[in-house]
Design a binder for these strands. Structure first.
Lengths: 245, 245
DNA sequence: TCGTCGTATTTGTCCTGACATGTGCTCTGC
DNA sequence: GCAGAGCACATGTCAGGACAAATACGACGA
């Protein structure tokens, strides 16, 4: 039950509970706290750090939500076994791959402004015929084609004219214009590659593809992006952690 | 900004924040609060219900985590647009389908006790050669084969002898023996159907299959189950909601 | 020897209070 | 008429305290 040393900076704008959670997480992934080991109890940890118990609880809760810790009443808080997989997060594939140390490339296949068809209008909660941007891109990892991506977003929200989508992620572009994505609903499935897919991805017609469609919502709860993507399953998969509440 | 009427039962063992969250959620899915509409502020909602602000916050936080509400400092709390998809939760396919009103059937293909191979030992954090249960099942929806499922669990944790897995879900069986699953890590991908898959699922060899492998951990953080499943993508997909924190 | 009761421990829930911080609006001054 | 300062408002963060409930473990008794 040796505790990691945690240092707090009360003058920092970073919340105290977040500082604690961050350092605790680092200690866990670094193996300073063994898998299955029990943490010290909340009360004494809070006292040792000079924090109140609610703040300490909030810090621990962050890691519980990430699936790294498990709490049991009357027993204590333990580190979950097993290697830690990165969670599915609200980032784009570009961010995912960059973080993984790879160097993704992008080829913009098309980027045009057109009128929303019924499917798009439904997903983005717009009227049929509203102007939207429609972007088709091919993602490559090294020389290997990885995914074909089709994104649609309301033209009223962002202007993609002159945006260099080959070197800037779509989500990064949105963030730059002040659009923060907060919630997304997505569906993961599979289908056969059609001729166009096969051509772009260097697969044969009928090969299995992993598909994901996602609708993203901003700060104010409005739909800002709808995407339909297809991935080569030998090069990409979705990892996630589920936590029971 | 009309608020739904919420009734509290302070004598109930159900936590107050949970009662509020439950009724708020019902009001949202029932459309009593329109999408995009702003909720009343925390302080006055708490006052109206006779609750403290932290309790009210906790209730709202539950729905924020589910992706139904969005909070913005200085602005307020709003209902997220878009139809609400059910979240990927820590339940089994059996529960999923039952909840959806369908009547899933199960055929147990094999259920045997054998020694863990290196892959299984690694995933379950056991020594190679440890006794495990290996269960292969076929899920059907009506007459349609839906998925082939292969689960492995430590024989020391549960005894599947005489358990009627055709009519009882695996997770339900685990719960019945006091094993509560708290955390799971899973990976979703796709692959071609091999001959065995094709035969069982009524597909042709080479057809795309949606795959999921999952390792589940219990209360104490120990691995209790490892599963590799393959789904017919025309009949099943994974829906989930992502929330930025 | 085994089961049962009681107690200590630990997390879960709930309360009150305070100040900080980001947003949006209005009001003022130019 | 317009821009900037200031203010009201809502959520974010933090403190400190209290009791409830579940668990583990030891002591006790049959």
């Amino acid at each position: 039950m040796t505790q990691p040393s945690i240092t707090l900076d009360r003058s920092s704008p970073v919340p105290l509970y977040f500082q604690v959670a961050e350092q605790l997480e680092r200690a866990i992934v670094a193996g300073e706290i063994a898998a299955g080991e029990r943490l010290d109890n909340e009360i004494s940890m809070a006292r040792d750090l000079g924090l109140s118990r609610p703040t300490m609880r909030q810090a621990i809760q962050v890691l519980v939500d990430k699936g790294m810790l498990v709490r049991r009443r009357g027993v204590g808080t333990q580190v979950v076994q097993g290697r830690v997989r990165r969670q599915v997060e609200l980032t784009s594939l570009f961010d995912d791959l960059s973080a993984a140390g790879h160097h993704p490339q992008t080829r913009v296949l098309s980027c045009e402004r057109l009128e929303a068809d019924p499917e798009i209008a439904e997903e983005l909660q717009l009227g049929v015929g509203t102007l939207v941007w429609s972007v088709r891109r091919l993602r490559l990892i090294g020389d290997q084609p990885l995914a074909v991506m089709h994104n649609v977003l309301p033209a009223s929200l962002v202007d993609l004219t002159g945006v260099d989508l080959e070197h800037e992620g779509l989500y990064a572009t949105l963030r730059a214009t002040g659009l923060a994505i907060r919630v997304a609903r997505q569906r993961i499935g599979a289908r056969r590659a059609d001729e166009a897919d096969a051509d772009l991805l260097g697969e044969s017609v009928g090969a299995p593809l992993l598909t994901m469609q996602r609708t993203a919502y901003d700060d104010s709860g409005h739909a800002v992006e709808y995407g339909r993507h297809a991935y080569r399953p030998d090069l990409y998969s979705f990892d996630m952690t589920l936590v029971d509440r």
